[in-house]
């Protein structure tokens, strides 16, 4: 699955230190709900702290570690 909006790009393709606004999550409903509960909700600013197999993110003053497989299905603009 991929985002249909051409102005968005996967979170995993941001450069370290870059910030984007979370646009959509193209994952199963269950995982999407789980990520949203953690605070990774559309409309929020996301900073990519570190690239890698486990991406480190900064969201709303909190930080998260996310598998790259997940980060590649999260789209930011």
């Amino acid at each position: 699955m991929a985002s249909t909006d051409p102005t968005t790009l996967p979170l995993s393709s941001l450069n370290t230190g870059d910030t984007g606004v979370l646009h959509s999550i193209s994952l199963s409903q269950e995982i999407t709900a789980q990520l949203e509960r953690l605070g990774l909700a559309p409309g929020r600013k996301v900073k990519l702290i570190k690239h890698g197999n486990r991406c480190l993110l900064g969201v709303a003053g909190a930080r998260f570690a996310l598998d790259r497989e997940l980060a590649s299905q999260i789209f930011v603009s």
Binding site: K45, I49, K50, L56, G58, G61, A62, R63, A65
Partner: peptide
Amino acid sequence: EQQGSLRSDLLDSFLT
């Protein structure tokens, strides 16, 4: 906005 410190960023990168 409340943000994490750069020191935490570096430490996180190292420890993970």
